[in-house]
C-alpha cells in the first residue's frame, strides 16, 4: 500500500485551450449534463418550496408555488414533532465531536507526517486501515461496551463513538496536508529556539489553518448525517439526533397518514445547514474530499 498524499492545493490553472472536436455526440453530452445539473438545483428548490405548503395542496399540484411564506410546517415540525430537540442534539453532537476529533487528530497527524521513521509509517498505516472497516462491524461491540458503562442512550456516548470512528479519515486527510507544508518553517522555528510543542502551536497550526478547517467541517457534515450508530445507540426521543428523528417521523406517518408538508420541512432542516456550509466553504470541501482522496 503506497501512500502518496497531497493536500488540497489552491493553485489556479491557466485556462486551457479549447480542444473539443465539437461533434454532435459532445453537444448531446453537454445538453444532458446541464439537464442533470438543472435537475439537482430544481430538486433542491422544489423541496424548499413544498415545505411552505400544506399536504393537500402538495398532493393536488406537486409543482405549485407556495401561496404564502408561512412557516406553519416548520413550526409544527419544530414543536409538535420535536425536531427542535433533535436539531439541538445534532448540532451539539456534531460540533463537540468534530472539535475533539480535530484537536486530537491534528497533533497526531503532524507528528506522523513530519518525523520519518518506520514506527511512524506503520502507525500511519494502522490509522488508515480503519478506513476499510464497514461501520456495521463495530456496531454491536460498541453497543455492548457502552451499555456496560451506561453510555447508551447518551449523547456523551455518541460523541465518544463519533470521535473514535473519525480518527482514520481525519488522520489520513491531515497527514497528507501536513506533509505538503514546507519543512523550512519548522527548521526556522527550531533555529529561533522554539520548543517542538511551541513550533506546532505557534508556527505550524496557523499555517495549517485551512486544512484543519476543512477537516473540521468534513467531520461536522459526516456527524450531522450519521444515521446507523445514532439509530442503534439512542433510544429515547429526547436524545434523538436529526436523522433518527426523521426516521421516526416517517414511520409514524404510516399510522397517522402522510404529513408531507411537515416532512418537507424536516428535510429542509436537514439540508439547509449543509447548503449554508457548502456555500461558505464549497471549493475547500470538494477539494478535501477529492484531491485529498484522489492522490
Amino acid at each position: 500500500m503506497s501512500l502518496s498524499l497531497r493536500a488540497p492545493s489552491l493553485r489556479r490553472r491557466p485556462s486551457r485551450p479549447s480542444l473539443s472536436g465539437g461533434g454532435p455526440l459532445r453537444a448531446v453530452g453537454i445538453v444532458l449534463l446541464w439537464l442533470f445539473v438543472a435537475l439537482n438545483v430544481a430538486g433542491l428548490v422544489w423541496v424548499v418550496f413544498q415545505s411552505f405548503r400544506d399536504t393537500r395542496s402538495i398532493l393536488s399540484s406537486p409543482f405549485g408555488l407556495p401561496d404564502s411564506w408561512s412557516f406553519e410546517n416548520f413550526s409544527t415540525a419544530w414543536k409538535v414533532s420535536d425536531f427542535a430537540t433533535a436539531t439541538f442534539n445534532s448540532v451539539s453532537v456534531a460540533v463537540i465531536s468534530s472539535v475533539v476529533t480535530v484537536a486530537l487528530a491534528a497533533p497526531a497527524a503532524y507528528y506522523l507526517s513530519r518525523h520519518e521513521s518506520r514506527l511512524n509509517r506503520n502507525l500511519t498505516l494502522f490509522f488508515i486501515l480503519g478506513l476499510g472497516v464497514p461501520v456495521q462491524v463495530i456496531l454491536i461491540p460498541l453497543f455492548v461496551m457502552l451499555n456496560q458503562v451506561s453510555l447508551t442512550n447518551s449523547l456523551i456516548g455518541l460523541n465518544l463513538v463519533y470521535i473514535g470512528i473519525s480518527m482514520p479519515f481525519t488522520v489520513f486527510l491531515l497527514t497528507g496536508f501536513f506533509r505538503s507544508l514546507p519543512a523550512e518553517l519548522e527548521e526556522a522555528a527550531a533555529l529561533d529556539g522554539a520548543s517542538p510543542i511551541g513550533t506546532f502551536l505557534r508556527v505550524m497550526l496557523p499555517v495549517a489553518k485551512g486544512g484543519i478547517l476543512t477537516a473540521f467541517v468534513l467531520q461536522l457534515i459526516s456527524h450531522w448525517n450519521e444515521t446507523l450508530l445514532a439509530l442503534t445507540l439512542l433510544q429515547s426521543t429526547d436524545k434523538y439526533t436529526l436523522p433518527v428523528a426523521l426516521i421516526s417521523f416517517v414511520q409514524q406517518q404510516t399510522y397517522s397518514g402522510a404529513d408531507w408538508g411537515g416532512l418537507f420541512a424536516g428535510l429542509c432542516i436537514v439540508i439547509l445547514p449543509l447548503l449554508a456550509v457548502y456555500l461558505w466553504l464549497g471549493r475547500k470541501l470538494s477539494e478535501g474530499l477529492t484531491l485529498g482522496m484522489g492522490k
Binding site: 486530537l104 497526531a108 506522523l112 490509522f127 472497516v133 463495530i138 461491540p141 461496551m145 473514535g164
Partner: peptide
C-alpha cells in the same frame, strides 16, 4: 502528540 488520538482509535475502533 499521537497518544490521545491513538487511545481513542484503539478503544473505540480497534477493540470493537
Amino acid at each position: 502528540f499521537v497518544g490521545p488520538a491513538l487511545t481513542f482509535y484503539v478503544v473505540l475502533f480497534i477493540i470493537p
